[in-house]
């Protein structure tokens, strides 16, 4: 039986090229993958066959550049199905960021849970990155995990958690930040206050006016740095008269 020949530039060719794709390789060899995504016309069901071929590459012995290419595509078409393999890379020194690059944009509770679950084991910048991503996704269920980070011995981790809680903007986040404001080291009090202002703004948008006003009142009181006090007073006035 004659061997089937693939036309140049086929999707199969592109996946073959991916196996040796490294820094400086010709990116045009991967164009068919992009074209396949584009031709799926945004229909998630048509992304599935592509996702089925892309996700396993992350476990294969291929260069970093190839895996990063895959993460970029999964950021656009990845689903819950890709979450486990991406989650396995969250604390990878080289690929941790690109795993988040994909995971942060995959909708659904699976990606939220993966980020939450990865947090306790993650270290260094990957840990801070995961905290940041939980904040970006405004994962209310992540508030407890983030709140636990506020007591971390690494003050940088605690500060990142405060910022993320501000983004989450839930009552639970507000309560955690209230405690952090009172015990934060001096050099982080303004981070705590800024996160609280962001949290209050978000509460206000969600119709939780009383909780938001309470935060603005506290931060607008004497004893706060001038710019925090000023911002809080202004926010209090605007919210009160809205």
């Amino acid at each position: 039986m004659a061997q089937e020949t693939k036309p140049a530039g086929s999707l199969d060719d592109a996946f073959a090229a991916l196996k040796t794709y490294d820094w400086g390789s010709d990116i045009r060899a991967l164009d068919p993958i992009d074209k396949a995504i584009e031709s799926a016309q945004g229909k998630a069901a048509e992304w599935k066959p592509l996702e089925n071929r892309l996700a396993p590459v992350l476990k294969a012995g291929v260069p970093r550049a190839a895996k990063e290419f895959v993460c970029r595509k999964l950021a656009l078409i990845g689903s819950a199905q890709s979450v486990p393999v991406l989650a396995s890379l969250l604390n990878d020194e080289e690929l941790g960021h690109m795993a988040r690059y994909a995971l942060e944009r995959i909708p659904g509770p699976e990606a939220d849970k993966a980020l939450r679950d990865a947090l306790p084991k993650a270290t260094g910048k990957n840990r801070i990155g995961i905290i940041n991503s939980i904040g970006v996704r405004r994962d209310a269920a992540g508030a407890a995990r983030l709140a636990a980070q506020l007591s971390d011995q690494d003050a940088e981790v605690a500060a990142a958690a405060a910022i993320a809680l501000g983004e989450v903007g839930s009552p639970e986040a507000a309560k955690a930040l209230e405690g952090y404001r009172k015990r934060a080291p001096k050099e982080f009090r303004n981070v705590a206050a800024d996160a609280s202002l962001a949290c209050a703004e978000r509460l206000l948008r969600r119709g939780r006016k009383d909780e938001a006003l309470a935060i603005f009142r506290e931060l607008g009181a004497e004893g706060q740095p001038a710019h925090i006090k000023s911002a809080a007073k202004r926010a209090l006035s605007e919210a009160t008269h809205a």
Binding site: L76, L103, I128, N132, G135, V136, E156
Partner: peptide, 18 residues
Amino acid sequence: GDEEANRMCSRAMRAPWT
């Protein structure tokens, strides 16, 4: 009604940046 386009509205930043 365009999930892929909405996913292009943000990108995860390399830590520590946010």
